[in-house]
Structure formats: C-alpha cells, structure tokens
Write a protein that binds this DNA or RNA. Structure first.
Lengths: 190, 190
DNA sequence: TGCCCCAATGTTAGTGGCTAACATTTGGTG
DNA sequence: CACCAAATGTTAGCCACTAACATTGGGGCA
C-alpha cells in the first residue's frame, strides 16, 4: 500500500511525462517517438495515448490556467476591459517566480524552439482565454470585446514567455511578463 | 500555347485548392482525405504535397500578409507601439470589404469551426507578426516591446475575424475588425 | 485473509498524413 | 523534331493516432 496518495494513474502519467521531457531535451522533439517514450516509461504506446490525447500534450498541458482566470476576477471592476485584464494578470505574476516551476521552464524551453509547439502553446491558452472572457462578460462587457481583450493579453503574455525562455537572461520571468503587460495597458506610455 | 499567363504549376495548385475547399465544405475537414482531394483534382497525392506542405495549408495560406506590414510602416511614427500598430492596421482595413474576398471567407469559415485549424490560423500570422515587429524596431522600439505589440494586435484581429465568420451577421467585416482594434488602443475608452 | 470486480494496461490491426527514392511524362526551346 | 528540365506518378515506408478485444493487477468487501 502506498503511503503517498499517488494513484497508479497519476504515477504512470508522471512517468510518461518525465520520460518524454528527458528524451525531448536529449534528442529533440521530432526525433523522439511515442513508442520510445512509452518503452522508456515501461508501458505500451496505447497507455501513452490514454493519458495524453496527443504527443504534444505532454509539453503543452500546463494546467495552471484556472488560477489566472481567478486573478482576473479578483481585479477591481469598472476599468476598461483590457486594463482590467492586465491588472488581474499582473496580480497573478506574484506567484510565477516561485521555485518548483523548474519543470514548467523545461517544458516551455522545448516548446519555444519548435514551430509546431510554439503554435500549440497559443492554442493551449484558448481555455484560459474563454475563462477570462466569461469573467468580463459577467461584469457587463460585451462578449466580443471580452474575447478580444483576453486574447490580446494572453497572446502578449505567451510571446513574452517564449522569448524569455529563448534568451535565458537572468532577468526574472515576472518582470519580463510585467513589461509585456505594460505595452498593452499604457503604463509604459509616458 | 496559353493566352492566359497561368503556368501549369499555378493551374494545378488552384485546382487542388478549389477541390479541397469544396470537399471540406461539403463533408468536413476531418472526413476529407488528401488522397480524395488529389483524385478530385486529377492528380496523385504526392502532387498535393508538392504544392502544399501540409493538409491544413490549403485552408491557412492567405498570403495577403505583406500588405499589412506595409500599412503599419505607413502609419505615423512617434506613437506608443500598440497605438502605432493599431493605426496602421486600421488603415489596412479599408481594402478588406472589397469583392473577390469571397474565397477568403470560405477558407476562414472552414477554419473557424475546427479547433486544430483555429490554432493554425494564429500560427499562420507569425510571419506577419515578425514583419510588423521589424517595422517598429526600425523606428527605435525595443525588439521585445515590438513583438508584444504586434502579437497582441494580430491576436485581436484574428479572434475578431474568426468570431465574425462564425456569427455571420450582416455587419461588415471591417467594422468588426475596427471594433477589435478599438478595444486595444483605447478609442473605446470614454 | 482471500476472492472478485473493474479499472488500467496490453495486443493487434488498421487509417491517414507525410516523406524518400526513383521512374515517367509533359511542355517549352533551340 | 529532338532534347532538357520541370512537373508528376509509383512505390514503399515511418509515425501519430484509433478501435476492438484480451489480459492483468490492485483495492475493497465478505
């Protein structure tokens, strides 16, 4: 019996993800086969697809998206849509430099260098985008404007994230992301 | 001898694209095989891939992207980056309602309803994004801010385009896209 | 403890996107 | 008309991904 609360499912999934990230880092995304990942994790390739819908989902599933929508919801109302979204996202950035995010950085670094995965990174934010838009709509913003504002802000954030990973400066991630938001809501306009 | 200046290559390509769009509209993107498209156009499946790198490229290649960057370059300098990009894009919208864009609308309509193609639509703007960013950099904007501004604006425009296609209102496309830009550069903020 | 049930996994076979290598045709040119 | 090169066809194969069915293993209940 396991003392840790990790079920078999969670263990298998974690093993697959670990194997995948290691192999992707070592020999590249394209050169790595799902078959190979599965073998490395001690399972069959079918098990892989039972835990991840596609090969790129191993890299793209971040799942810290609901927290973002919550932060936007907590931001003060009454602001113009884009300003409101930026304010919420800025608040969420507080938690982004914490340790334990190293695995996220590995994932983003793999994605940043690969055209298909870069595209997938944007696609992966669509759920978050919709969640943020709903928050705005609940405050009386039109659905159209809500979607535009959240899409623009998330695109800015995603580009900033990818660029930050490619040029691994020592500037903290949060300040880079904050600068991206400044471009949007005019804090940077003298 | 052909009086028209269409080379064999152009004719084959056009035939493939026409066949693809017709089949996609009739029976859906997923249910249509490249094999089928090729047969319909009277060629083999290899010829398809010699003209389009991937299956989705038939839907996603618009190629009216360089004009957009030119319009941004023509916009007045000295504005904050995002304002500048929006001004340029607004100018480009003048030409967007012209007739003959019907085929573009067919393509976007197909893309709008399909998750993978929606994602691809964003990815397809990356070249334009980079072109706009270069224009800004040439005017002294930092590469980082330039990329953020152009990514945000194009994301807004792309979302507006997709939404406009899904809810085929009788509101003209240009006014919808213009409204999206308003959300970004504050024209809408009283 | 021991049994049993079901969820997790394995096996196998197949489809379709995409590529490489090589053979073949076609169209324009000297 | 003959020739060269570009466009196309053929074939074979890899890999992501799926369906259908068999198998196993582990946790709960008697």
């Amino acid at each position: 019996m396991m003392v840790t609360s990790t079920s078999r499912t969670e263990r298998t999934r974690a093993g697959l993800q670990a194997a995948a990230l290691r192999l992707f880092s070592e020999q590249g995304y394209d050169a790595t086969t799902v078959e190979q990942i599965a073998r490395e994790a001690g399972v069959s390739h079918m098990t892989f697809f039972r835990h991840f819908p596609t090969k790129d989902a191993v890299v793209l599933d971040d799942g810290f998206d609901p927290a973002i929508a919550a932060a936007v919801a907590a931001a003060p109302t009454g602001l113009p849509p884009l300003t409101r979204v930026c304010a919420g996202l800025r608040a969420a950035l507080t938690h982004v430099d914490l340790p334990g995010q190293e695995e996220v950085r590995v994932r983003v670094r793999i994605a940043a260098g690969h055209p298909v995965l870069r595209a997938g990174t944007f696609a992966a934010t669509e759920a978050t985008q919709e969640a943020i838009a709903e928050v705005l709509v609940a405050d009386g913003v039109s659905p159209f404007e809500a979607r535009i504002a959240s899409a623009a802000a998330l695109a800015a954030l995603t580009v900033a994230l990818l660029e930050w990973c490619l040029s691994d400066q020592d500037v903290p991630m949060s300040s880079r992301l904050g600068a991206a938001l400044d471009v949007l809501d005019g804090t940077a306009r003298r």
